[in-house]
């Protein structure tokens, strides 16, 4: 137990929080943008999984991490586009469309993994590339702080930028106003000349971009390979974070931090030899309890009013 506590207060532990938070931040920002636009994208999990596969495969084919990242983004945006097409043009229920995409991602990636790597579990036999870690000059040399803040994967820094981008986008750009207006009241937005379909399509594509980054991080940063269902519900945890963050960029990022800590604790506890089957459930349990407490509080508040 003492070893465990020491571990939690170590520099490595705090460093690892940033690492496990990266995909959550990306996905939850995707959730915020799409949900505010009134088209809740629940395919985050699937989009990230497809992006993770594309990043691994194309960085292996071209031996270039940059191409891998680009293809990861492209695939995630394409399938976000498919979702947008079906929901906005064919009027598919977006939740069902999301379920369909998640199922496609889960099976489809294994399908292609088998074709390219002759393996239905992982891609370790393919020598794919990873994105570089960045050492920030000056900060790097500060004791403790340098060890925590510097030396992360480039996408970890991008994920922080993604939060700032989302905040700024929704708060002070025309597109952000349109997104909010369309999500709030479609008809009112239409009446002042905002195209609902165009705005919602853009919001879904933006959530696709976020998923592209998140997925690329998983197979080209978090680890250096692809394995089946490697997102292990991070896309869903992001949705819970978005609900608890009340659809604001900053609040959602804060909620993601909570789940990042839970994830890091579970990793640390597993390393300490606690029963790994049980320890692995910590982030999900934290999400469930967090969401429950949050919902009860909202419920009580509404009752008082």
């Amino acid at each position: 137990m003492k070893g465990f506590i020491n571990l939690i207060f170590s520099v490595d532990f705090v460093y690892s929080i940033f690492r496990v938070m990266t995909p959550l931040l990306f996905a939850s920002m995707g959730a915020v943008i799409s949900d505010i636009a009134g088209v809740p994208n629940i395919a985050l999990e699937g989009l990230m999984l497809m992006a993770a596969f594309a990043g691994m495969y194309f960085s292996y084919l071209t031996q270039s991490a940059a191409v891998g990242l680009l293809m990861a983004l492209l695939i995630a945006i394409t399938f976000a586009g498919v979702l947008a097409f079906f929901t906005l043009y064919y009027k598919t229920n977006i939740i069902l469309g999301g379920i369909a995409l998640n199922s496609l991602a889960s099976g489809g990636t294994v399908f292609f993994l088998y074709l390219v790597a002759n393996d239905k579990g992982t891609s370790v036999s393919l020598a794919s590339k990873t994105l570089p870690n960045i050492h920030i000059p000056i900060i790097e040399n500060i004791p403790i702080l340098g060890d925590i803040l510097s030396g992360h994967n480039i996408l970890t820094y991008v994920s922080v930028l993604a939060v700032i981008f989302t905040y700024y986008l929704l708060k002070s750009t025309d597109l952000g106003y349109h997104i909010r207006a369309v999500g709030e009241k479609k008809e009112a937005a239409e009446s002042v000349g905002i195209s609902t379909i165009k705005t919602q399509a853009i919001a879904l594509l933006l959530s696709g971009v976020m998923c592209g980054f998140g997925g690329a991080f998983m197979s080209m940063g978090y680890v250096s390979w692809f394995s089946r269902d490697m997102l292990s519900s991070r896309g869903w945890i992001a949705l819970a974070a978005e609900a608890m963050g009340r659809q604001t960029a900053i609040g959602t990022a804060a909620a993601s931090l909570l789940f990042g800590v839970a994830d890091a604790v579970s990793n640390a506890a597993a390393a300490q030899g606690l029963p790994s089957d049980l320890v692995k459930t910590i982030p999900y349990l934290a999400t469930l309890i967090g969401l429950a407490i949050f919902s009860v509080r909202i419920y009580k508040k509404q009752k008082e009013v």
Binding site: I42, I95, S232, S233, W236, I237, L239, A240, A243, D277, L278, K280, T281, Y284, L285, T287, L288, L291, A292, F294, S295, V296, I298, Y299
Partner: peptide, 25 residues
């Protein structure tokens, strides 16, 4: 959670999946 406090049943049920799997294993 859904009936009493309108918590999103999709997210909570998916979390339950992972919890059931861990406890079951």
């Amino acid at each position: 959670l859904r009936a009493k406090f309108s918590a999103n049943e999709m997210v909570t049920s998916l979390m339950m999946n992972n919890i059931c799997y861990g406890v079951g294993c």
